[in-house]
Amino acid sequence: MDEITWEEPFCGEGNSCFRLGTDPTGNAYIAIAGQEENRLTDSRDALRALILDIKAGKADHLL
């Protein structure tokens, strides 16, 4: 398995913290901080779309 480079945890107010990661082959990962072994995998484009929607307030209930 390729090595995943994890970003610093992002914590929403009063919610779980999550981390984003990428690997050299172009996969993107999202996981609850401290539980990176239980990660979701998708393409960078799909993860980027999810994050942009969250930041735009379309999916703030996910934080």
Score class of each variant (00 low, 15 high):
M1R: 14
M1S: 15
M1K: 10
M1D: 12
D2C: 02
D2P: 14
D2Q: 08
I4W: 02
I4C: 05
T5P: 00
T5A: 00
T5Q: 06
T5W: 04
W6D: 02
W6C: 01
E7M: 11
E7A: 13
E7C: 08
E7P: 02
E7N: 14
E7Q: 15
E8K: 15
E8I: 06
P9M: 06
P9Q: 04
F10D: 01
C11S: 06
C11I: 04
C11Y: 00
G12P: 14
G12W: 01
E13S: 09
G14N: 09
N15H: 09
N15P: 03
N15L: 01
S16V: 09
S16N: 14
S16R: 15
C17I: 12
C17F: 15
C17A: 14
F18S: 04
F18W: 04
F18Y: 03
R19W: 08
R19Q: 12
L20F: 14
L20G: 04
L20I: 15
G21A: 05
G21E: 09
T22R: 03
T22S: 00
T22K: 06
T22Y: 04
D23P: 07
D23K: 09
D23H: 10
D23M: 08
P24I: 00
P24A: 10
P24V: 05
T25I: 04
G26D: 14
G26H: 13
N27S: 10
N27C: 09
N27R: 11
N27E: 13
A28Q: 07
A28Y: 01
A28K: 01
I30N: 02
I30S: 05
I30V: 15
A31V: 01
I32L: 13
A33T: 12
A33E: 13
A33L: 04
A33K: 12
G34N: 06
G34M: 02
G34S: 03
G34L: 03
G34A: 03
G34H: 05
Q35D: 09
Q35R: 14
Q35W: 12
Q35H: 11
Q35I: 09
E36R: 10
E36H: 10
E37S: 08
E37T: 06
E37G: 00
N38V: 02
N38H: 13
N38Y: 10
N38E: 12
N38W: 11
R39P: 06
L40R: 12
L40P: 03
T41G: 00
T41C: 00
T41V: 11
T41W: 05
D42L: 11
D42R: 03
S43T: 15
S43C: 02
D45H: 03
D45Q: 13
R48V: 11
R48N: 09
A49H: 12
L50T: 11
I51S: 02
I51R: 02
L52M: 04
D53L: 01
D53E: 13
D53N: 13
I54C: 09
I54S: 02
K55F: 00
K55N: 15
K55T: 15
K55I: 14
A56G: 15
G57C: 06
G57H: 05
G57F: 00
K58I: 04
K58N: 13
K58Q: 05
K58S: 04
K58H: 05
A59G: 00
A59I: 08
D60A: 13
H61Y: 13
L62K: 09
L62I: 10
L62M: 11
L63M: 10
L63E: 07
